[in-house]
Design a protein around this nucleic acid. Structure first.
Lengths: 160, 160
DNA sequence: TATTGTTATACTCTATAACTATA
DNA sequence: TATAGTTATAGAGTATAACAATA
């Protein structure tokens, strides 16, 4: 039934584009990660949110939303989910009764650690064809990319 | 209002993960690409579909869906969109009255060429902080990754 | 029986806009 | 007036399941 293995793949010319390759690899890593962390009650976005809260205690929802490039309104459900799972808590802010200080619970920190370990394991498995040096290089290139892209958001287009 | 520039970013520990960086860069390139090709009546998925049809005349919808890792049912609307835009046509298949032979129109091929040029331009702009050598290396690493990941879909998890 | 394309439906993610309570 | 969080709503994107026509 499948005979595209040896001949040229159907998307040969698309594979010339870095963006296309980037997306394919992203989808692949992401889907593996999703299926491994769902037993922790996490999804990629809630994992990222949890991790940022762990590292930045007493963060507000609005600043968390900014960090995740998500609207405040979308943040509500994500934070709800983490709170209902007992992974974080919304604490009162002494000086400002409008906002919450988000803080991870002990369980939240433990789950975060497990999720990070899973992420690293998934990457070790999926990126096993790369040497350690190549992985380090990738990280370095991405870091440089993100810095330059923040300054140059493709003219002045919307940037999410 | 913003003071995270000099100090450590909120997502510092997530940035240790290649998958996280990959996704951030992907979203960035993608959003720039989306805003630039919408004047051509294309979205990323319809662009990919059009490009594959151009390169593989008389492809069926089912094989196109496989190439894009999309369900046949989702393919219908995408092909509809391209057909209504006059970029492709559904032709009859002599031997099999169940399926269509998808073929790009002249306009479709011209639009495809423009879209490819736009994609390359977006990448040139957004990846300007990388040297040509580094870009070539990225492409090479991705190529190797895709080959190895197809063989090793993270155990036997679903793979889309 | 299996396959192609289709439809109907539902689910996830996220955006927009309007609201409230604070500041 | 501006901000934090919330709600209601809608849109994109894609999945699942069932169906008709054809193989």
């Amino acid at each position: 039934m499948k005979q595209e293995a040896q001949s040229k793949p159907l998307d040969a010319s698309l594979r010339q584009l870095i963006g296309y390759n980037l997306r394919r690899v992203d989808l692949c890593i992401r889907s593996a990660f999703v299926s491994r962390i769902e037993s922790l009650g996490l999804k990629p976005t809630s994992f990222s949110a949890l991790s940022i809260i762990c590292d930045n205690p007493d963060l507000s929802q609005s600043r968390l939303a900014e960090a995740l490039s998500v609207k405040r309104s979308a943040m509500v459900l994500i934070v709800d989910e983490l709170e209902h799972g007992g992974l974080i808590a919304r604490h009162a802010v002494p000086g400002d009764r409008r906002s919450y200080a988000l803080r991870a619970t002990l369980k939240g920190m433990q789950v975060r650690d497990k999720a990070i370990a899973i992420a690293e394991q998934v990457e070790n498995e999926l990126l096993q064809s790369l040497t350690g040096q190549e992985k380090a290089l990738l990280t370095q290139l991405f870091t440089r990319l993100e810095q330059s892209m923040i300054k140059t958001p493709a003219k002045k287009e919307k940037f999410k």
